[in-house]
Simulated assay, not measured.
Amino acid sequence: MENKRKRARVQGGWAGSIHNRGASCAASGVSNARNEELESATHYRVRRDKKLPSEQQFVFKAPEEVVRKAPEPKILEKQGLYEISTMPSGVSRIHLIPGFMDLMEADWMFEQLLQEIPWGQRTHVRQDESYDEPRLTAWYGELPYTYSKLTMQANHHWHPLLTMLKDRIEDFTKNTFNSLLCNLYRNEKDSVDWHSDDEPALGRNPVIASLSFGATRTFEMRKKPLPEENNDYTYVQRVHIPLDHGTLLVMEGATQEDWQHRVPKEYHSREPRINLTFRTMYPDPEVLHP
């Protein structure tokens, strides 16, 4: 009997111990869960304070607008040899010589040319409408000259003054010329539009020597756009050259291939201007451009 009571006490002790351990474990589980909750909340607060990487990267910025401006034209007035561009076709050069002719000599020559050159006005046809070229011209040389789909017959007998000027320019430039286009701008309303002197009969990279008399007019140049520009001249490089009385301008290299030029209308000069452009014509362009 005594042994039974001892076994009961032992079993009761075990039973009580197991019960207490279960309660303890339950309490410990609640405590651990509470601690994990607090740690999780603390960790969340830290992460929220630091911001998630995804939140830092997701910031909207309006795209910057790219503004493309047309370049200001470069103005050339001083004497010098200028390389205005370098392209696969070659280097484009212009040589500017203000005062190439003495002032008093230039005055006398201007009057002689104005009175004695056989000036004429050509008529163009565009879209079944005819219009007069806004200047007077004369052509000297061995061959006729065709531009803008019209042909000028050559004056074979050069005026002695033109021959003298040709010899002087040839001596200066070390080039020979056999043809001459004379232009008379009667007033500020006369002009010539954008073009290049690139007719096949002039050969590749022709040298054009331009001598001016009379009123100062601005000679404008613009670079031909690259193929990807789709013939848009808005943003191309430009050069402006005031051509004074007695000034010589020589264009050479790839200038005619890569650039255009013009003399625009102006509204401040009512005096006439004469421009002589010496060049070399070839009788068989097929030899030069096979």
Rank of each mutant, 00 (worst) to 15 (best):
L249F: 01
T216S: 14
V207W: 01
L211D: 04
D244L: 12
V263W: 02
Y233P: 11
R204D: 15
D244N: 13
P225W: 06
R262T: 13
A201Y: 00
D258H: 06
Q237M: 14
I208S: 04
V239A: 01
D232M: 13
N230V: 10
K224M: 13
T234F: 10
K265D: 14
K223H: 14
R222H: 14
L248M: 10
A254I: 10
F213R: 04
P200D: 05
I208D: 04
F213N: 09
E252F: 09
N231M: 08
V250W: 04
N231I: 10
E220T: 12
V250L: 07
E257N: 14
T255M: 12
N205E: 09
G203Q: 03
E266V: 14
T216L: 09
F213P: 15
I241F: 04
V207I: 08
A254H: 07
I241Q: 06
N205K: 08
F219E: 00
Q237Y: 10
T216K: 07
R222V: 15
G214Q: 09
G253C: 07
A254R: 02
A201T: 06
E229W: 02
I241D: 04
A215L: 10
T255A: 10
H261V: 13
K223P: 08
K265T: 15
G253L: 08
A215E: 09
G203T: 08
V263D: 04
L211R: 01
T255W: 00
N230G: 08
Y233N: 07
P242S: 06
T247Q: 02
R217L: 14
A201S: 01
E228N: 05
S210T: 06
D258K: 05
A201W: 03
K224Q: 12
H261L: 13
P200I: 00
V236E: 07
K265Y: 05
T234G: 08
P264H: 05
L202S: 03
K223N: 09
G214W: 08
R217E: 14
P225F: 07
G253E: 00
A215D: 07
R262F: 10
V263L: 13
E266I: 15
V236A: 07
S210F: 02
T247G: 02
H240F: 14
T218M: 12
S212Q: 03
D258S: 11
R222E: 15
H240W: 11
P225L: 12
T247C: 07
G253S: 05
K223R: 15
R217V: 12
Y235G: 11
S210P: 00
Y233W: 08
K224H: 14
P242C: 05
Q256E: 10
E252W: 02
L243E: 01
G203W: 03
V236K: 00
H240P: 12
L249K: 00
P242Q: 02
H245W: 05
A209T: 03
E252G: 08
A209G: 01
M221K: 02
E257Q: 11
I208P: 05
P242K: 03
K223I: 11
P200H: 02
G214N: 11
E266H: 10
